[in-house]
Amino acid sequence: MKKKTAILGATTNPGRYAYFAAERLVSNKHEIVPIGIKKGEVFGKEILNIRDRPSVTGIDTVTMYIGAQNQGEWEDYILALKPKRIIFNPGSENPSLAKKALEKEIDVQYACTLVMLGNGLY
């Protein structure tokens, strides 16, 4: 099943893991919603400015590429997206946000989106 995925911390920089994730998600036919502070396009999708807290519906997965130290102001927004799961990629682990997500019955995974895609576990 294809999963509409919000990429938090999206970037146009091809050297960043968020960019690799966008590329792999698109090549695996998942719809991406890039969200971040960078401007530009990623694989045909405009990066939505997180500061505007863009309204997005139908999100299955939020994949985190924002470090825990920078997530605080966005926690309510992330939870308001009502994803089925949040993947905390290495370096983005946040026990406080994970606890809030679990309280809202959002699945929490400490994993790597790229590895999950590579192993067919996404």
Rank of each mutant, 00 (worst) to 15 (best):
G91V: 09
S27A: 15
L117W: 04
N70F: 15
Q71V: 03
K100P: 02
P34D: 12
I47V: 06
G58T: 03
P54A: 13
Y110L: 12
Y17E: 09
Y19T: 01
K39N: 13
L102E: 15
Y77C: 08
L81G: 03
P83K: 12
L8R: 00
L102M: 15
F43I: 04
A21C: 11
L48D: 02
E46G: 05
K38M: 12
M64A: 10
D107Y: 09
K29A: 14
A6S: 05
G118K: 11
G72W: 07
T11A: 05
F20C: 08
A10M: 06
G15R: 12
W74G: 06
F88R: 00
E73L: 14
W74Q: 05
Q71P: 05
P14M: 15
R51C: 07
A10G: 01
E103W: 08
P95N: 09
D107V: 14
P14V: 08
T113H: 04
E93G: 04
S55T: 05
G36W: 04
L121Q: 10
L114H: 01
N70D: 10
E75T: 06
R53P: 00
G58A: 12
P83D: 12
M116H: 02
L81K: 01
I35Q: 01
K3T: 06
V62E: 01
R53H: 09
N94P: 01
I32W: 05
M116A: 09
L25V: 07
I59W: 00
D52C: 08
Y65R: 01
E75S: 07
L102I: 08
G15W: 09
L79C: 05
E31F: 07
T5R: 02
S92F: 05
Q69V: 14
A21K: 01
G36R: 03
K104V: 06
A22P: 00
I35Y: 00
F88I: 07
I37D: 05
T5K: 02
F20Q: 15
V56L: 10
K104S: 09
E31P: 02
Y77M: 08
